[in-house]
Nucleic acid binder design. Structure first.
Lengths: 179, 179
DNA sequence: GTCGTTATGTAGCGAGTGCTACACTTGTAG
DNA sequence: CTACAAGTGTAGCACTCGCTACATAACGAC
């Protein structure tokens, strides 16, 4: 019933790569299509309309993120909540994460506008990240579920402050995780 | 040398109101002008081009925010860091703040793209908020400057998680401020 | 071999974009 | 009264947007 499925799956990685580089905010079909070696005409053909394309893209990107987490980040456990947070902050400070964060803040902005597709993708990404943090807390952590929420909240606050050029505030703020 | 100055100052509040409601991401001159009772023609006349208009708007909005902080928030000191953060979170949960946050995440997204005007406005807003938090920490706080950074980081993390529909994570995370 | 489905290129529509050219009216300074 | 600058309306340019109409390949089923 849906033979375009195959072509969609082939296209999505290239589309995602383009979106990763240029953001979602002013995504337009023609350059996107060019980047994937096809035409706006065919994108609409495969996905129906731009909204559906973006929804599929977000889905794909959330899945990508899930897969990338364990690749980019060390697999061992941290020695403390604080160190866990600092590790994430340090690694995501590397330049190659900039495209991801450019995209991420576009997604958050979309969420704030109430866009369901964005909310679904962002929620999935945060849930995944929460799980990752929980798995990387020290064995001895007295309450990993709760600790992960503390750590994630601090990480995200620091990340936002970094995005607006106030990274020092966030880094000082991380000290809230000494326990 | 700048006779449009006056008209600009008259226009800015109405322009800001429109932007507050519709966000910055897909701002376009004609609807914006209509909302302010003028024309795209005149906006360009007064501001030169769209970028300069947006820069002026961000400047105005940052100033608005500074003024609004003490109006919307109680003026007394909190009884603890945690309570201070919870107060901000509770107040900003009220519906009338939604337009501001819609705008805010647009600004953060703009910062992540490296836009200088957005960075300046966002930085000013965060600095102002940091100062406000510091002023509202308990008298007895052992290190208000550092405490304010902890509190602000946690607040912003919680706010972002709320924006993407994971407010519970952020609220649990606030517990990191018990000290 | 014919037919129907899938896939794709070309061309274009209607709407919206930032911005400008031009003409015109004011208000003011000399 | 005149001259010049400030301000404003009308119209439009050159462009991009998402999307569609139309024609035509390619290919498998019968």
């Amino acid at each position: 019933m849906s033979p375009p499925r195959l072509s969609r799956e082939i296209l999505l990685p290239q589309l995602a790569a383009h979106v990763m580089e240029h953001g979602l905010a002013d995504l337009s079909l023609r350059p996107l299509a060019r980047a994937a070696g096809t035409s706006d005409r065919m994108l609409i053909y495969h996905f129906g309309n731009k909204d559906a394309l973006v929804a599929a893209l977000l889905d794909h990107i959330a899945a990508m993120f899930a897969g990338a987490l364990d690749t980019a980040f060390p697999s061992g456990r941290a020695t403390s909540r604080n160190e866990c947070a600092r590790t994430v902050l340090t690694i995501t400070d590397r330049g190659e994460f900039a495209p991801f964060f450019r995209l991420w803040w576009d997604i958050v902005a979309g969420c704030a506008q109430g866009n369901e597709a964005y909310l679904a993708a962002a929620g999935a990404i945060m849930d995944r990240l929460l799980g990752w943090v929980e798995d990387h807390l020290p064995e001895a952590d007295p309450d990993p579920a709760h600790g992960a929420r503390r750590v994630l909240t601090a990480i995200e606050g620091a990340q936002m402050l970094r995005a607006v050029g106030r990274g020092e505030i966030g880094e000082a703020g991380l000290a809230a995780l000494e326990s």
